[in-house]
Design a protein around this nucleic acid. Sequence first.
RNA 1: GGGCGGUUGGCUCAGCGGUAGAGCGUCCCCUUCACACGGGGAAGGUCACAGGUUCAAUCCCUGUACCGCCCACCA
Length: 912
Amino acid sequence: MMDKTFDPAAVEARVSSAWETGDAFKAGRPERSGAEPFTIVIPPPNVTGSLHMGHALNNTLQDILARFERMRGRDVLWQPGTDHAGIATQMVVERRLAEAKQPGRREIGRAAFVAKVWDWKAESGGAIVNQLKRLGASCDWSRERFTMGLAGAPDDQMVRAVTKVFVDLHAQGLIYRDKRLVNWDPKFQTAISDLEVLQIEVKGHLWHFDYPIVDAAGTETGAIITVATTRPETLLGDTAVAVHPDDERYTALVGSFVRLPLVGRLIPIVADEYSDPEKGTGAVKITPAHDFNDFEVGRRHGCTPINILDAEARITLDGNDAFLKDSTPEPEALALHGLDRFEARKRVVALMEARERLRLIEPNTHAVPHGDRSNVVIEPYLTDQWYVNVKPLAERALQAVRDGRTRFIPENYEKTFFQWLENIEPWCISRQLWWGHQIPVWYDEAGGCFVAASEADAQAQADAKHGGPVALRRDEDVLDTWFSSALWPFSTLGWPDATPELERYYPTNTLVTGKDIIFFWVARMMMLGLHVTDRVPFDTVYLHTLVRDATGAKMSKSKGNVVDPLGLIDQYGADALRFTLAAMAAQGRDIKLAVNRVEGYRNFATKLWNASRFAEMNGCTLRADYRPEAATETLNRWALGEAARAVAEVTSALEAYRFNDAAAAAYRFVWNIFCDWYVELAKPVLQGEGDAASKAETQATVAFLIDQIAKLLHPFMPFLTEELWAIKGEGMPDRGLLALAPWPDLARLNDAASEAEVGWLVDLVSEIRSARSETSVPAAAQIPLVVIGADEALRGRATRWSETLTRLARLSELRFEAVAPKNSVQLLVRGSVAALPLEGIVDLGAEVARLEKEAAKATADIAKIEAKLGNADFMARAPDEIVEEQRERRDAEAARLEKITEALARLTDQSA
RNA sequence: GGGCGGUUGGCUCAGCGGUAGAGCGUCCCCUUCACACGGGGAAGGUCACAGGUUCAAUCCCUGUACCGCCCACCA
């Protein structure tokens, strides 16, 4: 006996363990060895993270695909794992140390700190995996991987993969070390890539400074050129002033020099197209060491960059001694040494003002780069870093998408992808962090550099070069987290070893991820995947949107509008949450998650549960010998046909990654067809004392359809459906887990004749109910139904369904007459007419109004169609089937109008 | 500045050449024997605006206005 209500928590626990015990999600199950593989690699969540709504969406969609394909017989590998997430994790552990008042990372040193991070991973790393399991993710958990491999296993395959790619790319000249401007994050004290920089609008100022012009002898002429800047402190590193070659205001000054205030150095006024006459004063100071554009300008004019910052973004003039000697500096008096950059800014402005070189301060709002994690202002900083020359790799990735070897869904993301890859810049991959894959590079004391797969290799190289043993020290930096993530589709399968898994499951099939990491991750997997394996890492990329709160705002802790998926699972069940996300996952549109939707789909789960209970209470049990195509009862044939249609809709929607359409089709069938009509129409058969064979067939059909529904809904609601499958399967020969059962195949069960008959019945019941309600017939009242002018067929049809009609429409009797009784409400149903003689029971005035409204609508429709049919152009150019369709509609409407008019005439005559 | 979306009933969103749909909300009726996390009924939309293409436009094209996102930009 089924419980009275569906209890998600209990069912989820039970079903999860059944899946586990049954090894349901294991890839390469023996019976599927001949099946085509289907592979998805999970976007690895941060190992120390916890499940948020984005994960819930992402993994629900992946799980729907995985379960769908598994039921379609594929050998599914959904490869799980987690990411070490360099900065994020290091940050968390540092914060924990601080909170616990323990010594910080610099105090305890690298080895001890890294050990602490591993400890933290061990302590918290299982959480996200368990949370994914609670969501129902059907990953092959036995294959879980971590982007950094195993603690204390330097030879771990995941580490070897990263090292090998680095070493190979270096050997190919695609990885190199270079001194250039990087985005320096002063908070984390590391370089970050362009992608990790966010431009944030900031209200600031534009300071206008006068730079004095000097003559050939270096004497101030009294003339000045005014430059505008948002970063006064960079003045110290100026190497030129640039004006536009066509800017007539300055043409005469090009080639002359100015004396840089405060510093005293002479710098040239140069002509460069970079300078924009519209911006500022049209004259721009050039600081190559502290601005990406200026770096290029400086290079064009042979200016050596002057670095005025130390690595902690503190101002210093120490590097400028060579220049200072030639001028008349007073660096001590400037008192800028060791000042924080923003303090230095104030000080430079004050000094300029004191020297009457400050002309103007104007408010200025502009975009300022910030670190995406640190949220502090990024400082362009000249340092040595490792880069990947991604240009040639990007070319192959672009080609693969142009060729269609990898396709994006929705398709328009291809454009975004193209645009980024076509303008790609070198990728800075070194990070001054401790948590991550340490760069496999060793240096000798002379600065000689050895790139090798192991320290021993490096030592051998160095020893050979020097003709004897030398001391080496390893590069301290680690790699950008995304470097290892980029290898994920093949590193998780065992690469660089030639494993059977790599052979069987690579390239993978579908990648499902958020549109926000198309550059961070998707593009880089494409580039490195193609380069390393010569194959695209996946054939399809499905990009989903962000999950926002109900009002459309981005969820964030500071706004306090974060909806916790685990809380929703606790409250409504994982199935309800999953169904909600699927139903809302329309392509290309952000999801605004309203909790009442989750509640609605929880209700849906309960509805199905209760329909199953009803089946149980009415002896609807599965029959091993049941064959749907052999069903003879009209009602059953109709329901099977509807189910076939629903299966076809869900299948094609899922094949097209239209999750919302798939969910809607399943929902509609289960609730609006199966529960609302089929079960209701079947009640007289199931609960009456009629024909035993027909009752038996109906019982078997109900049971069969619940089974089909379980299958159809399983990708969306795996827990509930697996439970129903088990309950309904009791007493059946072992049929295994639903997760491994075949996807429904109901093709060719459509039956036009049964559709016509049951469709008529459904419409008639609806019409009667509507008329009753509109004319205020009390719900409990039983009223007669008169079928008007029925021919043999209609008479038979009505008689066959009399019991059902009586029950669903609350009739007192069903009879047949040639013409409608006086003062009755007439109903037009698919060409037939029925009447409810309600004289004295209801207000017929309301009925007159109702009919008049209907007549008006029919008249308008007919006029519209007539206009079309009367249009020669339409008749000449519209396709025949459209013309025919319009004719049929016109005729149908006309017939309807005629009947409405008759009914109306009868009503008004009598009441007059 | 470059690119990409969006604008459809009160709200959240589907649809996308030929009868405008759903969920929630609202209103009315119903504790009827699977389910009140329920059943039945109803109201509610000139599909942002202006042109164009077409026999036909919510749907295709162009433009406009708002809204959003991504990329670039510290004069």
